[in-house]
Simulated scan of single mutants.
Amino acid sequence: MFVVSLTYKVPDEIVDFHRPGHMAWLKDAFDAGVFLASGRRVPAIGGVLLSNADKLTLDESLSKDPFYSNGVADFEIIEFTATSVADGYENLLDS
């Protein structure tokens, strides 16, 4: 499983300019099953994505994000193995 942390590296006006493209890309990635959850960081300095896709699929998807291709944000990818989950989230366990 992967946690992807995005940190904006440009002024808010540039982030806002690219946000519609980012949101369209994100919808397509959710539809393709790449991501399980996403949201804004607090404070709003970037975002977080949760993925259970394989690394190649994740990398290919991220490369299409307008925030990535236009240099809007830095991306940190953290891989981890889910070994314990709350009831109802067993689908997140690594097999």
Rank of each mutant, 00 (worst) to 15 (best):
S69K: 11
S95M: 03
F67T: 05
L93V: 04
T81R: 15
L6D: 06
D12A: 15
H22M: 09
V3N: 05
G71Y: 07
V72K: 11
N91G: 07
D16E: 15
L50P: 12
A29F: 00
V10K: 13
L58T: 04
A73M: 03
A32W: 07
L62F: 13
Y89Q: 10
G47R: 10
P20W: 02
G88S: 02
K55W: 00
E60A: 12
L50K: 08
D28N: 14
I45E: 13
E79N: 14
G21W: 08
D54V: 00
G47A: 15
F80Y: 11
Y68F: 15
V42M: 15
V48Q: 11
S84I: 05
F75T: 02
S95C: 02
T83K: 11
D74M: 01
I78T: 14
T57P: 03
R19D: 05
E90T: 14
V15R: 09
E79M: 07
F17T: 14
L62V: 12
G47E: 12
S51P: 07
V15L: 04
N70M: 06
D12V: 13
K55V: 05
M1D: 10
F2C: 00
A37D: 11
S95A: 05
D59L: 12
M23D: 12
L93R: 08
L50V: 15
V4K: 00
A29H: 01
T7V: 07
H18N: 08
D87I: 00
H18W: 09
L36M: 14
A32S: 14
E76T: 10
F2Q: 02
G33N: 06
L58D: 05
S95Y: 04
S61N: 15
H22S: 07
M1E: 08
G33P: 04
N52K: 05
L92N: 09
D16V: 04
L50A: 14
E79A: 11
E76I: 04
V34Y: 04
F67R: 06
A24L: 14
H22A: 10
I78D: 12
L93S: 09
